[in-house]
Simulated assay, not measured.
Amino acid sequence: MTVIAGKVALVTGGAGGIGLAMVKKLVQHGAKGVAIVDISEEAGFRAINEIVKIFGENKATFMKADVTKKTELEAVFETTIKTYNQLDIVINNAGKVDEFDWKSTVELNLVAVIEGTYLAMKKYLPKYKSGEEGLIVNTASTCGFHTFQVAPIYWTTKHGLIGLGKALGGEEFYKKYQVRVITICPGLVSTPLSERPDGFLFPELKDLEFSTVSLVVQDPERIGEGLIEAIKKGKSGSLWIIEEDKPAYEVAVPHYKTMKV
């Protein structure tokens, strides 16, 4: 399994919330360097300052990019290679909730993740990984295991990421590229993303529908801890739930023939 010490990681949406928590945990566990990719330059430099205060200089680099634009996404891969001369871990984490501009939600939450996954798997990790295997981690959600009317497009993208991770995490892909693919599925997290009802299609349903899931709101740091657990233990194609402030645990999706009603 991929160890973190001495590795170089790229994290999209890494300047705040879950993404920044992931960056901190990677650095804490000995990452050689982390490329923080985010569309917000202000948040990016704030994140770097925070990393420097906690861990010292030269632990992370900020790269501004709109990851929905393939040219910008590929550019941060290239810059990471030029900066660190290696790339071992790619975490596709950027996402949003906007049910009104739903196409942009699909572009960021799903299409950009597919692009990032393919770039990492087919082009960069096989060539620039420092060890025997590379690693891709995609951030889905427990939303990918049930359905809410309050944000149908957001939920659709998370279902899609679970399918993507299971497919690209298959044995044949691993044999060809030597890249492990893991999907983490956080529950409720205290971030601006989860606290802005203006992005929901039916905000009046939020309290009703959220009452059907665990209402334990986690600090982003717990997701960072869960990420490390999944990296250390997860097989390619595995799905990891991180909820209720408990250790991450793996789940399996049953075959449809066992799901008859």
Results as ranks from 00 to 15, higher is better:
T2F: 08
V3T: 14
I4W: 11
A5T: 14
G6D: 05
K7M: 11
L10F: 13
L10G: 05
V11G: 13
V23H: 11
H29I: 02
K32W: 02
V37R: 14
D38R: 08
S40M: 05
A43S: 15
G44S: 05
F45T: 15
A47I: 03
E50A: 12
I51K: 05
K53E: 10
K53P: 00
I54P: 00
G56E: 07
E57N: 13
F62Y: 13
T68M: 14
K69R: 07
L73C: 13
L87Q: 09
L87D: 07
N93W: 07
K96Y: 12
K96S: 14
D98F: 01
T105Q: 15
E107N: 12
E107W: 04
E107T: 01
V111Q: 10
V111L: 14
V111G: 08
G116V: 01
A120D: 05
K122F: 05
Y124I: 02
Y124C: 12
K129L: 04
G134D: 05
N138F: 01
A140I: 13
T142K: 06
C143H: 09
H146Q: 03
H146P: 01
H146F: 15
V150G: 02
P152Q: 06
T156E: 00
K158E: 05
I162E: 07
G163H: 03
L164W: 06
L168P: 12
G169K: 11
K176T: 08
I184N: 12
G187A: 03
L188Q: 08
V189N: 08
V189H: 09
T191W: 13
S194I: 00
S194V: 00
E195V: 01
K206Y: 09
F210K: 07
T212D: 02
S214G: 07
P220D: 04
G224S: 11
G224T: 07
K233A: 10
G234L: 02
K235M: 02
S236R: 12
S238V: 07
W240V: 01
I241M: 11
I242H: 09
A248G: 04
A248M: 01
Y249D: 09
Y249G: 08
K257T: 09
T258R: 05
